[in-house]
């Protein structure tokens, strides 16, 4: 057996599974988004579903909301994760506990975190009760609205809570692989602590940070259960809107759901390209 055919044989099962499920699934979604559904007598593909989706004000507002959620969550989580990673490189009392908690958090499913966050920060949640006991508020209505709110603060808080550990772990692994040497060298060459960070450490951390951020952005953009639990009635996050359209008993709404899925996939592809670039410069793939 030649090397080539051996490699092909080794890859075949994985490619078969992903091709059969993932690519075919995407293809089917694409077909249906063009309103090609022979079972329902639709055999003339057209772009009506895309027109309907893109001209509906609901879709654009949902798209805006989802982009906002993903951008804000990723930016805040990435910044805090950098700080946390730098902190965890140093020794301080309780370091073991913090690193345990960070890993613990990684294993908690999003849906559990979302429910916990709801109980914590809603207007009648634990914080509101503490504020009431401290005499800061007279009732729930005085507590800032952090869930079902127009700025999706509760959703962003949850993603920051959940993704901060994820990015931190990736950064720590990268930093560990780099060792302390570069930074120390820079310091001995007269760089200030800030210069050493900005000119040496940060550029070294950046590829890992970018790759992790792309993953986090994609997740925060496309997750369903978190906005379902913490989101407002309107506008809905894009995945919630798409799922609702897909479950509309009016069949006409279904191609629109598929069109939304395709548009979401398109945004995902852009992220994939970004990730691939970041990963390549990191030499990890």
């Amino acid at each position: 057996m030649t090397d080539r055919s051996r490699i092909a044989l080794m890859l075949a099962p994985a490619l078969l599974v992903l091709g059969g499920l993932f690519l075919t699934g995407l293809g089917l979604t694409l077909l249906r988004s063009f309103r090609y559904m022979p079972a329902l007598g639709l055999t003339e593909p057209d772009l009506a579903a895309y027109t309907a989706v893109l001209t509906a004000p609901g879709f654009l507002r949902s798209l805006g909301l989802s982009l906002w959620i993903a951008t804000a969550s990723t930016a805040i989580a990435a910044l805090l994760a950098m700080a946390a990673a730098l902190l965890l490189r140093q020794s301080f009392p309780g370091r073991a506990l913090v690193s345990f908690l960070i890993q613990l958090n990684l294993t908690v499913p999003h849906i559990v975190g979302a429910i916990g966050m709801l109980y914590l920060v809603s207007q009648s949640g634990s914080f509101a009760r503490l504020a009431k006991a401290a005499g800061l508020i007279a009732g729930p209505q005085d507590f800032p609205a952090l869930t079902q709110d127009p700025w999706a603060i509760g959703i962003i808080l949850l993603y920051v809570w959940k993704e901060l550990p994820f990015i931190t772990l990736i950064l720590l692994a990268n930093l560990q692989a780099l060792g302390e040497d570069h930074e120390a060298t820079a310091r001995t060459l007269g760089a200030t602590r800030w210069q050493a960070f900005a000119h040496v450490l940060l550029p070294l951390m950046l590829p890992g940070l970018m790759a992790a951020s792309a993953l986090v952005f994609a997740f925060a953009f496309g997750a369903y259960e978190v906005p379902l639990i913490l989101g407002a009635h309107a506008p809905k996050a894009l995945p919630v809107l798409a799922w609702q359209a897909a479950n509309d008993t009016d069949l006409a709404a279904r191609p629109e759901a598929m069109a939304m899925a395709v548009l979401i996939a398109g945004i995902g592809l852009v992220l994939l390209a970004l990730y691939a670039r970041a990963a390549r410069s990191r030499h990890v793939d």
Binding site: P140, Q141, A145, Q148, D149, A232, H233
Partner: peptide
């Protein structure tokens, strides 16, 4: 209305929760 009608509960469960907590 609650929150000046800027938003509404999405489910009756959320309304029940608001009622339970005296909101």
């Amino acid at each position: 209305l609650w929150r000046e009608g800027a938003t509404y509960p999405t489910t009756v469960t959320q309304l029940n929760e608001l009622f339970a907590n005296g909101e």
